[in-house]
Nucleic acid binder design. Structure first.
Length: 494
RNA sequence: GGCGCGUUCGUCUAGUGGCUUAGGACGCCGCCCUCUCAAGGCGGAGAUCACGGGUUCGAAUCCCGUACGCGCUACCA
């Protein structure tokens, strides 16, 4: 096949938000298209008026573009195969359905919902192997049909499935799958409100939009024979099908809202980097065949093939996503991370405070390898943004010794005299004191960290004091000298 | 119920008949590094490859059956 004719699509229905499973489907389509120099189109499947949610399309597009999935054609960028909203293509479906009716491949059905309900119940009571429409309206006379049509009797159009035939689906990930038309219902193609069902709209649009590969979730595999029947009835060439394994909850059921976050926007709000989410979701059902776990989008594009997509569903394991998020943070430059931190800060209690870019970059550099989320910097090391309001008791107990007060006072004295000290100046000063006093480094370092940060862990002490600066450090040490000895004493008495 | 798909460490996975005492990653545990916490390095525990039959000199890999899980079974997508 000519590489340039490769066209795929992501066709979500606007029911609220972008599901992570949807993101994975969109990603695989995108990777496949880019890998093959093809095109990817975004098509909005808004044929169900009952499920329409205001703002859902904007939300979908927003999440997709945040994730870095760019479309060649779609509602935003347009294209030669539009419109890209199915709700704007009603006459197209109507024309195609009429063609099918004229050819005897589809037929009008005037059955009421009540009759259908009774039919189903009857079939169930008789324990029939499969419940399907009884083709009642297929046998209506032309006169009856015309009369019904003229009196505007509510109706749908159904696919006329010939029983006793075999339909084969050739799926890239699953191989050959066989179906018997005895098990295929006379699917409704056009609803009574004039809108098409998924099956009709999907096939017509995929053909008209020259889609070469249909890459979608496994939940569609069972209805693929219906689609193949439609392609055959229209005398159209089949696209290549690839059905992706499902994303699962920890209990192996289909990933759902009840058991955690499923919306891409939720992960975005929680502070996950798009690179991490993409990396993670790409590996859920695909791998390059080697041991590589860390991927950027361009490497994914380079390596991705449909042949290496797995068959079995994959549990969405948040632990690995978290690790990947930290991994991506570690590999980014502080310049890339700066806007993320600023954004988190603007949502935090420090939103009114001003910090220079230079200061924030130093903070980032010192914290980068200690965090899973950028916002961890704010929650785990608030001391970069405000002086400690308390001192961790455990650390006081463990690190504040009898000589801490004297050592720290001496250190304070020394640095007060320093002119514009560098990180090395602080280091030299501290080392000279412990040497003179003939104690271990930790004897001063730990109390100092406690005084500066209020906690027992964090970046290297010289990074910490340098980032905070002489003035701020002096002030914090003074406060600590006034309060920690008292705390230490009362802790010892308990 | 019917139809379809699936089943390798807790999880994501490598593996396409001999290279496999089934490899990697996350998580967990330990050691090293070290001013703390991380990161990093090293190591450990963890899978009778769902089960049962075959085919074969040889099977996680091929075939059959069973079990279990999941999907579909709407005028939803």
């Amino acid at each position: 096949m000519d590489e340039n004719n490769i066209r795929v699509r992501f066709a979500p229905s606007p029911t609220g938000y972008l599901h992570v499973g949807g993101l994975r489907t969109a990603l695989y389509n995108y990777l496949f298209a880019k890998h093959n120099n093809g095109k990817i189109v975004l098509r909005i499947e808004d044929t169900d008026r009952n499920r329409y949610v205001e703002g859902a399309v904007e939300n979908l597009i927003d999440s997709l573009s945040w994730a870095g999935i760019k479309f060649d054609e779609g509602p935003v960028q347009g294209g030669n195969f539009g419109p890209y909203y199915q709700s704007e293509r009603l006459t197209i479906y109507r024309e195609h359905v009429n063609k099918l009716i004229n050819d005897g491949k589809a037929y009008y059905c005037f059955c009421t919902p009540e009759r259908l309900k009774n039919l189903r119940e009857e079939q169930q009571r008789l324990k029939l192997p499969q419940a399907k429409y009884d083709k009642h309206c297929l046998h209506l006379s032309p006169q009856e049909i015309n009369k019904n049509l003229e009196t505007k009797k509510s109706h749908v159009v159904r696919l006329n499935v010939k029983p006793g035939e075999k339909v084969f689906v050739h799926d890239v990930v699953r191989g050959k799958v066989e179906f018997n038309t005895d098990n295929i219902d006379d699917q409704i193609l056009l609803k009574s409100d004039g809108f098409p069902t998924y099956h009709l709209a999907n096939v017509v649009d995929d053909h008209l939009m020259k889609i070469s590969h249909v890459i979608r979730g496994e939940e569609w595999l069972s209805s693929t024979p219906k689609h193949i029947l439609l392609y055959n009835y229209f005398n159209w060439n089949l696209p290549v099908f690839a059905h992706l394994p499902l994303l699962l909850n920890p209990d192996k059921s289909k990933l759902s809202k009840r058991q955690g976050d499923v919306a891409v926007e939720d992960y975005r709000a929680k502070g996950y980097l798009k690179e991490a989410l993409i990396n993670f979701v790409a590996l859920l059902g695909w791998n390059a065949g080697d041991d590589k776990e860390f991927y950027e989008m361009d490497e994914l594009i380079e390596k991705f093939t449909l042949e290496r997509v797995n068959k079995a569903g994959a549990v969405f394991n948040i632990e690995k996503l978290n690790w990947l998020n930290g991994e991506h943070i570690r590999r980014k430059s502080v310049d890339e991370l700066l806007p993320v931190l600023k954004n988190e800060l603007s949502k935090s209690k420090f939103k009114g405070k001003q910090f220079s870019d230079n200061y924030l970059k130093l903070v980032l550099k010192s914290m980068q390898e200690r965090i899973t989320f950028i916002k961890d910097i704010i929650t785990n090391s608030s001391y970069f943004f405000e002086p400690p309001s308390s001192y961790d008791e455990k650390t006081v107990k463990k690190r504040w010794k009898d000589d801490s007060e004297i050592l720290l006072s001496k250190f304070l004295n020394e640095i007060e005299g320093l002119e514009n000290p560098s990180k090395e100046d602080f280091e030299i000063t501290l080392k000279s004191i412990v040497e003179k006093e003939n104690v271990g480094l930790g004897r001063l370092i730990h109390p100092l960290r406690l005084a500066l940060s209020g906690v027992g862990q964090g970046p290297g002490i010289f990074d910490l004091i340098f980032i905070l600066g002489k003035e701020e450090s002096v002030s914090r040490i003074k406060t600590a000298l006034k309060t920690i000895p008292g705390i230490s004493k009362s802790l010892k008495n308990n």
